[in-house]
Design a protein around this nucleic acid. Structure first.
Length: 467
RNA sequence: GCCCCCAUCGUCUAGCGGCCUAGGACGAUACCUUCUCAAGGUAUAGAUCGUCGGUUCGAAUCCGACUGGGGGUACCA
């Protein structure tokens, strides 16, 4: 059996790696791992008008952040380099011209205006909106001559009879009537290929065995199949996974959902948790486990088991899963992650001390500072008005001053005693103290927090208020 | 408009003809624990398997139609 080679082909036309691409990348990656194959990244930068500077680098970095390491890509190269389509222009032109020679493609000189008008009329007549083939009638040598001085594109010459079908690994047989297929533009007037030409040429030359991509490509697949046939190339295996959806069920979009990898990073999600979460979309472990590693995923993955239906992307479950990952981490690992996340303005040692108190209370790295920020800075404002509690607080101050063994236990003991002595219910007593020390109504366990804060700092925070 | 894909609790899913009076997870609710919040534990609600028709002794599971949703329809990917 031939080597399994799969690829993802992101376009640098957005801010960063799209979460939908992460999903597709994951499917490709674990499929490659499962089959001891190669995972390739190819940058499809053929749309010069939508190109976003720096996007390519960000995409590649994000892929690394996720741990989806590629075997071949634009940076590290590989046996079929270059892996950037803008550097392979000659290849596409060569094959486009070959298709023209064999009569499977033709030059077209139609203007965008004419095309618009044509489609409008077709719509009115309830006909399919495909190219009417006007330029197909131009004799070949005349077309060739015109192509020397006029702007032109090269279009695929789709027959108007017959059907084109292919077998999709997740959906079974899919077939299209040729007469409804558009004479797709293959080579644009700027000399760049369209996706359709580029993808087929590169997938063939790079020996891609399985084309795993999202559902949105199903309708263009028959055109790709035709190109393979006309060029005399064997078909790869096609598999179209589901497309991730917004809560309103439409295709996941930046207008309705956070989609960029960088957003997830800044929110403090862990890449492992995100991948785990994504894996749960349209697929499940044979034994029903919901928490598993990339490796475990790869061991059990079968492309045929991916569900074709489009799942709604729901952050609530990601939050839970991320929390699970954070709780399972070692204290040291979590410390490192948090320090990395909040920056070196904060003492790593202090962060380390707080970990036992926060680990099961945060779901994302970004939850850390709101919960534990008071360890680093004394509160600037207080969530309840403490002005009525000055005498209580100075009582507390006095009592705590007397605590010689500054440990959570003894602090707690003395506070319990005081509360009892003053006949104040624990809940009320500790709430006042909590706000006095942390500024907030919600905090990690108080006695332990005060221990970490230290006696001096705690007392100074108390006297700050009783002033 | 035209073409294609899809359809089990609010959400993610298990289920591949009898084990299903449909199981799990998230979320929700209640209780336990408790100095707050979490975490943990226990329990509850939540899907006549989109609808209708067929096949079968038997259907969530197979077939068809309809309905609904989605995608494509660009010199974007």
């Amino acid at each position: 059996m031939n080597e399994v080679r799969v690829r993802i082909a992101p376009s640098p036309t957005g801010e960063d790696l799209h979460i939908g691409n992460v999903y597709t990348a994951l499917l490709n990656y674990i499929f490659a791992k499962k089959n001891k194959g190669k995972f390739i990244v190819r940058i499809e930068d053929t749309d010069r008008t939508r190109l976003v500077p720096g996007a390519e680098q960000r995409i590649l970095q994000s892929l690394k952040w996720f741990g989806l390491d590629s075997d071949e890509d634009p940076d590290k190269g590989g046996p079929y380099a270059p892996y950037r389509q803008s550097q392979r222009l000659d290849l596409y032109r060569q094959y486009a011209e070959k298709l023209v020679e064999t009569g499977h493609a033709y030059y077209s000189f139609c203007t965008p205006d004419r095309l618009d008008e044509m489609r409008k009329k077709q719509q009115e007549k309830k006909e399919p909106t495909i190219y009417d083939g006007l330029c197909k009638k131009i004799p070949k040598n005349e077309a060739l001559a015109r192509s020397k001085k006029e702007k032109y594109v090269i279009r695929l010459n789709v027959p108007d009879v017959g059907t084109t079908e292919f077998t999709d690994l997740v959906r079974g047989k899919i077939s299209f009537e040729n007469r409804l297929l558009d004479d797709q533009v293959l080579l644009k007037s700027d000399g760049y290929p369209t996706y359709h030409l580029g993808v087929v040429v590169d997938d063939y030359l790079m020996k891609i065995s399985h084309v795993i991509r999202a559902e949105e490509w199903i309708s263009s697949t028959p055109k790709h199949v035709l190109i393979y046939q006309y060029l005399g190339w064997p078909l790869p295996v096609f598999a179209h996974g589901p497309i991730l959806r917004n809560p309103d069920r439409s295709k996941l979009s930046k207008r309705k959902n956070p989609v960029w990898a960088s957003w997830y990073r800044k929110q403090g999600y862990l890449p492992e948790a995100i991948l785990n979460f994504l894996a749960l979309m349209g697929w499940s472990m044979p034994d029903g486990r919901e928490i598993f590693s990339l490796t475990e995923m790869a061991e059990n993955f079968r492309l045929e088991e991916v569900k074709p239906a489009g799942p709604t992307f729901n952050l609530e479950k990601l939050d839970w899963l991320n929390g699970e990952y954070m709780r399972k981490m070692s204290k040291a690992a979590l410390q490192t992650k948090i320090v990395e996340f909040i920056g070196d303005k904060y003492s790593s040692d202090l962060v380390g001390k707080t970990i036992p108190l926060v680990q099961e209370r945060i779901k994302k790295l970004s939850d850390y500072l709101p919960l534990a920020g008071f360890f680093f800075n004394s509160p600037k404002d207080y969530e309840i008005d403490l002005s009525k509690n000055r005498s209580l607080l100075s009582n507390i101050h006095q009592k705590l001053s007397a605590v010689s063994d500054w440990k959570a236990d003894s602090i707690g003991k003395s506070m319990q005693d005081l509360a009892q002595e003053l006949k104040i219910p624990n809940s009320k007593f500790f709430m006042i103290l909590r706000v006095a020390v942390t500024g907030k109504k919600i905090s990690p366990p108080l006695n332990e927090s005060m221990e970490i804060l230290g006696k001096d700092e705690t007392l100074s925070r108390l006297s700050q208020i009783s002033k």
